[in-house]
Amino acid sequence: MAKKTYHNKNRDLDALFRDIETWFTEQGYQTQTNRTDGAWFLQAAKTEMWRKAVGASRAFNVLIQGQTNDFSVELSTGEWASNLAAGGIAAVLTGGATLLISGFTAGWSKKIESDLWNFIDQKVMFGEKAKSTQELVVMKTQSTLEEKLKQLKDAYEQGFIDEVAYNTKKLEMEAQMQASKQNANTEEKLIKLKGLLDAGILSQGEFEMKKAELMRESSNSELDAQISKLNAAVAAGVLTQEEYESKKAAIEKQSELAAKIKQLENARDAGIITHEEFEKKKLGLLV
């Protein structure tokens, strides 16, 4: 049995597993897989006719175990499991010496082993990185909204809602998707900024300045989303053009005020102005 352990690679193990399965499939192997928490198992074998012709009933086994930054990959040969999905990984791994034979002894398997290790090493080195918590949240949100958009389109095509209602709700959902992406992007950048501050690469003042810039960008994104909703309301006939202009101006004014107050807060937190100066300047903005 050949085994390699990888540390601090930050790899998406689901993606690595899919890549290995695709690698076998593209070379004409049939595959079967099973997954449990922290373990991915794959068997790959040529067709039954080919195996009988060469007198080999062996399958290649690939076992990945661990987490994104600390995982191992094992390669071996063993009997093709009759029902891997039902039997599970444990059934194969504990099935006795006839299931897992140490090393690759068959001549036809040696080159496959070498090529496969080269492929895995390349994927570990340059493959897809594990997704951050923020990325996973965005993916889940986007998936939910995309499903809702599909349901909305189906409702329109089946005549349950009219074109105006469809376009209105569609614009609202698209604005939500854009806002979700922007918020996650801002949070990711803030985490990186905090890391630079903790590492001493940025001073507190530099951190607060960069943070203020990010918050302004986020505020602009939220403003765009609110205006998109107003556009949808106008398209649906809920608002007149005059009402639209009035509400848009109020939203822009509120957004500008919030941005200025945030700048003052950052200046106060960075020690650029005192608490008393902050309160005085904030009061001047609110009057």
Rank of each mutant, 00 (worst) to 15 (best):
K189P: 01
E222S: 05
L202H: 00
Q176G: 11
I201Q: 04
E208H: 09
N167W: 06
K248W: 01
N185G: 12
Q176M: 15
N185E: 15
E243R: 13
I251N: 03
E174R: 11
Q241E: 11
E242Y: 03
E222W: 10
L193D: 00
L239H: 05
S255N: 14
K229D: 08
A179S: 13
Y244R: 11
K169R: 13
Q226M: 12
G205D: 05
A250C: 06
E163C: 01
I227D: 03
A249M: 06
I227A: 03
A184F: 04
S219N: 11
Y166Q: 01
S203D: 00
S246I: 04
E222T: 00
Q182A: 14
K253Y: 05
A225V: 01
K229C: 06
L214Y: 11
T186R: 09
K194N: 12
A235M: 09
K194Q: 13
G205K: 13
K194E: 11
A165D: 10
V164E: 07
S255G: 08
E188L: 11
S203A: 05
F160N: 15
E172W: 12
L197A: 02
K192L: 11
F160W: 12
L171S: 10
I161V: 13
K211L: 08
A235F: 12
T240D: 02
A259N: 12
T240F: 05
I201H: 02
E172N: 13
L171D: 06
E187D: 12
V238S: 08
V164I: 15
D198Q: 10
E245M: 12
I191T: 11
T240V: 02
A236E: 04
S218Q: 14
S180Q: 10
A199N: 09
K229I: 04
S246H: 12
V238Q: 06
D162M: 09
L190R: 08
N167V: 00
I227L: 06
N183K: 15
E213W: 04
E187R: 14
N183S: 15
K192E: 07
S219D: 07
S180L: 02
F160H: 15
D198S: 06
Q254T: 15
L239F: 09
N167R: 13
V164W: 01
K170R: 15
F160P: 00
N231I: 06
E256S: 12
A179Q: 15
